[in-house]
Design a protein around this nucleic acid. Structure first.
Length: 204
DNA sequence: TTCGTGATAGAG
DNA sequence: TCTATCACGAAG
C-alpha cells in the first residue's frame, strides 16, 4: 500500500489540510477516508499549540514533515495531527477531525463501544469516526503513535493517497470549531454533503 | 445542558 | 504545590 510522500507535508498547512480531504488514514486492518480537517499555523495563530506550549515548538524542531503529533485532550480524547513543514512559510499542523469508515468496521465498533453505555445505532457507521476523539478511539490511536512517521509505508498508522477510483471531493472551508481563540479563520475543511463530518459546515 | 478526566505550563 | 485551561463526547 503506498503512502503520501513527505513532499505532501511541505505545503503550507492550509493547502495541506484541504488536500488531505479524500485521502485515507490506515491503522492496521482499519481504514477510513478523511472528510474533515483543520489547519493550525505555528505563527500568528493563537489556537495552535505552539502559542502556549513550548513542547509543541520543540516537536516541530525535532521531527520531519508527516510526523504524527498526538496528544490527550480533556483527559479523555486522543487527537491525531500531522506535522507540516513548508520551506519559507510557517510550519503548522493539520488536525484530522472525521473519517468515513471503510475497512475494519467491526473492530472500530468494538473499540468505540467500550466508551459507551447505551447501544450504538444500527445500520449506521457515522458514530464511529465523526469527531477527532472518536476516530482516535476507533483506530486505537494513543500516545505511542506520537512522533511516528505517517509517510512510512511499513508503519501500522499511515496516510494513503485518495484512490484513483474515488472522485475528487467538493470541499467547503469554514471556521474551525471547538476552539476559543482565532475563531475567525476559515481553516476547517469538510467534504461537501458528507454525512460523516462531525458538525456540518454552516452557510452556503 | 452538565460533567468527567489528565497532561501541560505558569504562577505562587 | 496549586490552578486554569483544553482541537471532546456521552448522557440527560
Amino acid at each position: 500500500m503506498n503512502t503520501l510522500s513527505a513532499d505532501f507535508f511541505q505545503q503550507d498547512p492550509v493547502t495541506c489540510a484541504r488536500a488531505l480531504v479524500g485521502c485515507l488514514v490506515i491503522s492496521g486492518e482499519c481504514a477510513g477516508r478523511i472528510v474533515e480537517t483543520e489547519a493550525y499555523s505555528a505563527e500568528n495563530d493563537d489556537a495552535c499549540h505552539t502559542a502556549t506550549r513550548p513542547s509543541a515548538r520543540a516537536f516541530i524542531a525535532a521531527h520531519p514533515p508527516g510526523a504524527a503529533y498526538v496528544y490527550l485532550n480533556y483527559g479523555v480524547h486522543w487527537m491525531l495531527n500531522t506535522l507540516v513543514k513548508p520551506t519559507g512559510t510557517p510550519h503548522g499542523f493539520v488536525l484530522i477531525r472525521a473519517l468515513e469508515p471503510l475497512q475494519g468496521i467491526p473492530l472500530m465498533a468494538r473499540r468505540r463501544k467500550a466508551a459507551r453505555k447505551t447501544p450504538p445505532p444500527k445500520n449506521d457507521t457515522r458514530w464511529l469516526c465523526s469527531g477527532p476523539g472518536r476516530l482516535a478511539a476507533a483506530l486505537a490511536i494513543r500516545q505511542s503513535h506520537h512522533g511516528t512517521d505517517l509517510c512510512n509505508p511499513d508503519a501500522p498508522l499511515r496516510f494513503a493517497p485518495r484512490p484513483a477510483s474515488s472522485p475528487a471531493p467538493g470541499i467547503l472551508a469554514s471556521p474551525r470549531i471547538g476552539i476559543t481563540r482565532a475563531t475567525d479563520l476559515a481553516w476547517r475543511f469538510t467534504e461537501k454533503d458528507s454525512p460523516f463530518v462531525s458538525v456540518p459546515a454552516r452557510g452556503k
